[in-house]
Design a protein around this nucleic acid. Structure first.
Lengths: 365, 365
DNA sequence: AATAATTACTAACGCGCGTTAATAGTTGCT
DNA sequence: AGCAACTATTAACGCGCGTTAGTAATTATT
């Protein structure tokens, strides 16, 4: 175990002072250094295999060169999040270009305030990106006056925090409009997550709004709340099928959850899109590889990540952007899972006798 | 922007010295502190909202309290890795219990050595976990004598690095044996990744070994290399179908890739398992929710993560474990995607005339 | 030739904390 | 009372680096 190489060692070998070494290696132009001196220093550093100590650098410069990604979700949900890799991919790529690091942190429910304070006050990181926070997160207030910049992925109404998000409401509306345009009138909805999560309520609102604009009555009985993972999608779809409600299409506000719905429909012997049309949300890689391919709203996790990072970078440089929030576009991608109603609608078979009245309303509009 | 709270402030408020504060907050028992003094200090710290500066602490104690997870894969592959969330979930959970942080790092191909040195020498982290390294990684040698502990997820033959892995070879063998037991004789293989990745070659070797033990000839024409993502699975399955080779089952060494194969088979109008049986590897959450549900080898990413972390922790404490590598068990989970051959084998239809000879070998064994 | 301005470099301090060696204060024993 | 053995606390140093204020050497200006 050889002793650690310090800048003093480099200075000694180059025959200059430690200060000069620092100036050269950090490209400080304010003090001019003779080119040959600089070269001598660089050579010495290379020869010794010198890497400046991260902690010392951070302490002296008050910059850790790390940004934090905070996940407001329990590990068991993290485990099956198909969106996380995309976010990470985008962030890692952007960070590498600025030779910054990514500190990943998961906050326990109820420990948010504690964790946020610890991270910001202890200066573990220079900036912070909050992934999928809950609206009722008790620590958000504190972050508004944190001493490091914060960017939220998602929208927190009434918060002064900067944020990046897709237009969940409009996008969900477009998804449901797509179904309405295909003639569907009885459209169920499975949310992507519990409603305290910002995206969940917005997508549900989009669903409601689309129905309203089309003059279709909103029925709470047609709504189910999923919980991020496939299993919950399966359960909630099953719950819908077991209810007395009739519907010919489902807007599932997350592809992952939608795949669970696929499974439940398949189990029930129902065909997509013959019996039920499905529209998802997110456009995860699998969406174009399932059978039938999934109609969905394309959201680029990488784009969200990059945009968040860019915003954060600007905040760290101290130049305040004019607008508090960035909204990214989405794109509806029609695939095989959604189709015009009645093309082969045999959904009525099950329990047709007792739901005939409602059934009419599904087709006669 | 209020001035940062330091331990001196706490000391002043509590009416003691900074040293005492340090002793109290770090639970140093070697010097005894009167309980009421300790209480005074704790109260003062709480009142001021004191959080010790991470960099200063790291510098003074030579411990960053961070461990690094290094991903040897380009961001575009990270983006569609269904296994990463499981690993992260396991790690985050374990880390939180020891109040450590996770630094995520991606290494560019060709930059491995550079990145490893930077991370270890600059002491960004206390320990390092290497995810899915390539066998030909030029930086591994350097890590063997790094000044921080390293654990590899996966097996690197001939390396002295500690490692955690599932028994890929035996597990793959079991998967293929399952197919052989169902009567299959012409079994194709699609690897999970390019062969320079350690797990890919081991799983392929397991496939070969199972064939050999069963007295079945290994045909290189029946092997394809996928590249982690679904799309590559789709492509390679297509490539198999377009070849002249006959086969009644495919061992796909990754569930994610297998789902791509599903898609290709579906496109080709072939049924799983009627025409082709499929066995996957990993047991990602989706495996039990696709139609048909996927027979696969269950690997717990979380377990791998936790085991890696435990090993790393022991190394960091300095107690060397007796064995260099930990091997975790797997479990074959038979589901719907694999079935006895010939139950409804109409796979011969396509190009039956020109492949009849081979075809015989698929059933007459 | 004398002074000012510029260039090239360095000594020394501070970042906030952990920790050792030393110092008062207290109790136990003969 | 007198010495030893603790107990409770602190002064002071070092971790490795960035950075300001300052010095010495050279060049430009009057």
């Amino acid at each position: 175990m050889s002793r650690r190489v310090t800048s003093q060692d480099v200075a000694d070998l180059a025959g200059v002072s430690r200060t000069t070494v620092s100036f050269v290696l950090n490209n400080v132009h304010r003090f001019s250094i003779r080119p040959e001196t600089a070269e001598k220093v660089r050579l010495a550093a290379q020869e010794l295999g010198y890497y400046p100590n991260a902690s010392a650098k951070a302490l002296a410069s008050n910059q850790t060169k790390n940004i934090g990604l905070i996940i407001s979700r329990a590990p068991q949900y993290v485990a099956s999040d198909p969106f996380l890799p995309q976010i990470l991919s985008g962030l890692l790529d952007a960070l590498k270009q600025n030779s910054q690091g990514l500190l990943l942190e998961w906050v326990e429910p109820g420990q948010q305030l504690q964790t946020y304070l610890e991270l910001t006050r202890a200066h573990h990181i220079d900036g912070m990106i909050l992934m999928t926070p809950r609206l009722d997160d008790p620590g958000l207030r504190a972050l508004e006056e944190a001493d490091i910049p914060v960017v939220v992925m998602g929208y927190i109404p009434g918060s002064s925090l900067h944020s990046v998000d897709v237009d969940n409401l409009t996008s969900a509306e477009a998804a449901v409009n797509h179904l309405i345009g295909l003639g569907h009138r009885c459209i169920a909805c499975i949310t992507n997550a519990p409603l305290p999560y910002s995206s969940a309520i917005q997508r549900l609102d989009g669903y409601k709004s689309a129905l309203q604009k089309a003059g279709i009555e909103f029925k709470p009985e047609l709504v189910r709340e999923a919980d991020f993972d496939i299993k919950s999608g399966h359960q909630q779809m099953k719950s819908l099928l077991q209810s007395d409600q009739e519907f010919t299409a489902v807007f599932v506000a997350s592809d992952n959850v939608a795949l669970g719905a696929y499974s439940a429909l398949s189990e029930a012997g129902l065909s997509i899109p013959d019996d039920i049309s499905i529209v998802g949300f997110d456009d995860i890689p699998m969406a174009s590889f399932v059978t039938p391919t999934l109609t969905t709203v394309a959201v680029s996790g990488q784009e969200i990540a990059i945009e968040s990072y860019n915003l954060l970078t600007r905040l760290m440089r101290g130049d305040l952007p004019e607008s508090r929030s960035v909204t990214l576009p989405t794109r509806l991608i029609p695939r095989e899972s959604s189709r015009e109603i009645g093309r082969r609608g045999k959904r009525g078979e099950r329990g047709a006798e007792k739901t005939s009245a409602k059934f009419v309303s599904c087709f006669n509009d």
